[in-house]
Amino acid sequence: MNAIRRNRSVQIGMALLALVVVTAVLAPPIAGMDPLRMTPEDRLTSPVAAHPFGTDMFGRDILARTLHGGRISLSVGLMVAAVALAAGLGIGLVAGYVRGVDRIVMRVMDGIMAIPGILLAIALIALSGATLTTVVVAIAVPEVPRVVRLVRSVVLAVREEPYVEAAVAAGARLPRLLVRHVLPNTLAPLIVQGSYVCASAMIVESILGFLGAGMPPEVPSWGNVMAEGRTFFQIAPWILFFPGAFLAVTVLSVNLLGDGLRDTLDPRLRGRFQ
């Protein structure tokens, strides 16, 4: 734990992420404005004191929309990571331990991996309607195979370890084996993978929004806000710039966190300097 806290990447990542989370949680008091309120007389205003980030084509405040959008985008990132990890962990554990299931599951995973993730996601959303749930599921599904592969590879490696064989010889039953010896080994790589999934989910959310296949237009997310700025980017680049910058900082901080965790948690690196 101390090693994690002392890691530079983790420190920077945590600090930046905390900043973004605070602005999202405290969006109403900071922005002081309803992200949906239209002021047609103020449309496409460049950043001024009243609208620090400017306004869009309906005169809606970009600051308010960016901060409120952060709530949606961050939630999507977290929820996708949670869904993908939970599904991947369950399937991966079974695949790693039950030979017969393994072959079938891995073929299905290979098939899903062959379908480009964004295509699958936009197709799923287009055909089932854009809601928070469908967006989260649609972004999570293509991520699952990689988590399954990760968990499975850890399980396959761990079950060959002499200490696991010793536990088998000492009469440990399968559930105990999984919980005591296998599961703890999957946690570190899963946490690391989870941070990467979370970061990539936020990028995918913005792309879906940009393509018009993301969250419904009345819900501001970073992707949606940027999508609306597309047409006007030559005369009003701030509509694209500010949410883009927030997204970039958030993804950067989550990735830094992931890199830092990987460097401190990866047993191969850890063993080397003990």
Binding site: E161, P162, Y163, V164, E165, A166, A167, V168, A169, A170, G171, R180, H181, P184
Partner: peptide, 21 residues
């Protein structure tokens, strides 16, 4: 299972035969 306890094993690599956690 009942027989497992009657036959036990000591492995070669002392660094991998104990769960580090």
């Amino acid at each position: 299972r009942p027989f497992r306890r009657r036959i036990q094993m000591v492995f070669q690599d002392p660094f991998r035969s104990l769960n580090p956690r």
